[in-house]
Design a protein around this nucleic acid. Structure first.
Lengths: 97, 97, 97, 97
DNA sequence: AACGTTGAAATAGTTC
DNA sequence: GAACTATTTCAACGTT
């Protein structure tokens, strides 16, 4: 039983070390990304908007549209939008339940 | 000198306790807010959109517009928008430097 | 575009208002905390250090507990503990079947 | 609406592509880490505990240091230390004027 | 007053 | 699909 445990300990140690190694590499990349944004900022780009761009590009056009639509519905309900200006694609007159 | 320090210690302790008390109350409110969103979710609202609404209402209309405009410029530059669909308020033809 | 039922509109409005009310109270508390630090500074305390004390005290409780749990976690990882005993105090760990 | 200069467009595109490239690499590493955990699980380790070990080890280094700094912080708050001595080791604290 | 730094809040992802 | 964890984003703070 003691032998088994010792071997398990070594095995555990290996996993921990491998994972920590990978996480270090991952962190290095996260830092690189951070640097890129900083670099973009330094030459005058709006970092917040840039982040949003990267985020949006991960989503499909339809996903984006769905989120915008939901927001528009809520804004409309709260009087935050003029009656007509919701969006260009004004077609879908779906009645809310 | 020792007397001074003892009195300073008491004073310090008071500040720490008062601050911790206030932070507890603040945390309690944060929890209440969390609960409200959970409640809204439970009755069918889209929490993410709801959060965005609350966020947008903190900003003035002009602030909102500015952010949207910047995003549209970037999306346009990357071909993520059709040429015409940027937004309803298409008026401001400012030439980029 | 789709719209909300009138009742849903009212409901939404209620949520938004309640949340905004709570956030105002939360902000007021944040201001109070800020004032406390300013007050402490005014009587000669080092605000940076004071902040650090508050932060460290907050962490200490949970962190200390976590460190104490270390052994149990390792034993668990090595299969020396069963599922239910992980929250037991260190003293009873060996007794767990 | 305003548009970017052609050169700025290219620059923006470059940033976006570089960032997306880095994020892909980062995601690949995240997948590798996930695989490692899965591998560990496959040979019988408790993944949750393993995760906890990795997390605790990460914290330990910095946290332990912070706890050691506690005394200095308190002394600083009480005006018993000057500005520069705060990073000194505990042993030399009383020597600081 | 911009800058980076840090802590809190929000979102995304994973597990059960 | 609900809870938990990890990651990402955002805002406040001190700093220069």
């Amino acid at each position: 039983m003691s032998t088994l445990q010792v071997s398990a300990q070594k095995h555990l140690r290996q996993f921990v070390e491998q994972i920590e190694r990978l996480e270090e590499e991952k962190k290095a990349l996260a830092d690189d990304i951070r640097d890129k944004f900083a670099e973009a900022k330094a030459v005058g780009f709006d970092v917040k908007a840039l982040r949003q761009i990267v985020r949006l590009r991960k989503k499909s056009a339809s996903e984006r549209q769905e989120e915008e639509d939901m927001l528009a519905v809520y804004m409309h309900a709260l009087g935050m939008l003029d009656e007509d200006s919701e969006t260009a694609s004004a077609g879908t007159l779906v009645a809310a339940e």
